[in-house]
């Protein structure tokens, strides 16, 4: 079971955390909602829960709760640019289908 960050993603997360001035890492998760079943959660983490799994990638702690782990195993988080827009992208091998924009998905 593993979740990875690309180096570009890790660099951005590190600088965002630094700018924020607090927080121990980045939470990746899923929750049920959205137009295609599941939606990704991407949040700063101030407190790690006992049941969370913690990964360390390029010096950044990635925190995942046990329920989300099932859906995210093998996911790689990347940081991309698309014209003027930039942000994070989930490359999740478990996804069977996603909505047009990729914000929500089904497994």
């Amino acid at each position: 079971m593993a979740i990875t960050l690309t180096e570009a993603a890790a660099d951005r997360v590190r600088s965002f955390l630094e700018n924020r001035g607090k927080g121990v890492g980045l939470r990746l998760g899923v929750r049920t909602s959205g137009c295609s079943g599941m939606a990704y959660v991407l949040e700063f983490v101030d407190d790690i829960d006992d049941s969370d799994t913690v990964f360390e990638e390029h010096g950044v702690k990635v925190i995942v709760d046990p329920k989300s782990m099932v859906y995210l195993d093998g996911t790689e988080l990347d940081f991309k640019r698309d014209g003027l827009n930039e942000g994070f992208e989930f490359n999740n091998p478990n996804v069977k289908d996603s909505c047009g924009c990729g914000e929500s998905f089904t497994v």
Binding site: F16, L26, R31, A39, L42, E43, F88, E89, F90, E103
Partner: peptide, 15 residues
């Protein structure tokens, strides 16, 4: 493809 931003703890918005 939507590119996501990091939210504050507990503030992740619905798609």
């Amino acid at each position: 493809m939507a590119l996501l931003q990091i939210s504050e703890p507990g503030q992740a918005t619905a798609p």
